[in-house]
């Protein structure tokens, strides 16, 4: 019985994770609309997951663009 309970809990967890993936893949996760940062990230293909600067593929472009900002 104990083993059965554990398997049921595990299966329920897997179902929840599966539903999150399904909702994300079908676009049924709220993105905050046009003005929101999530929608903005999706539109511009932005990856918000990098933890540190070297993980961000945007950094070379941003560092290069920095020279355009002049200290006045």
């Amino acid at each position: 019985m104990e083993r059965f309970k554990k398997i049921v809990k595990f299966s329920a967890g897997c179902v929840v994770l599966g539903l999150i993936l399904l909702a994300a893949a079908s676009g049924n996760i709220p993105t905050g609309g046009e003005g929101g940062v999530i929608e903005h990230n999706l539109r511009e293909k932005r990856d918000a997951t990098p933890l540190i600067y070297s993980e961000s593929e945007e950094m070379p472009r941003l560092e290069q663009g920095l020279s355009e900002i002049k200290l006045r």
């Binding site: 940062v37 918000a48 997951t49 990098p50 933890l51 961000s56 560092e63 900002i69």
Partner: peptide, 18 residues
């Protein structure tokens, strides 16, 4: 996190993102 910083910064414009 850097990814979240870049995303939030870009909401204020290209210069802010950098």
């Amino acid at each position: 996190a850097t990814g979240a910083v870049v995303a939030a910064g870009s909401m204020l414009g290209a210069e802010a993102e950098k």
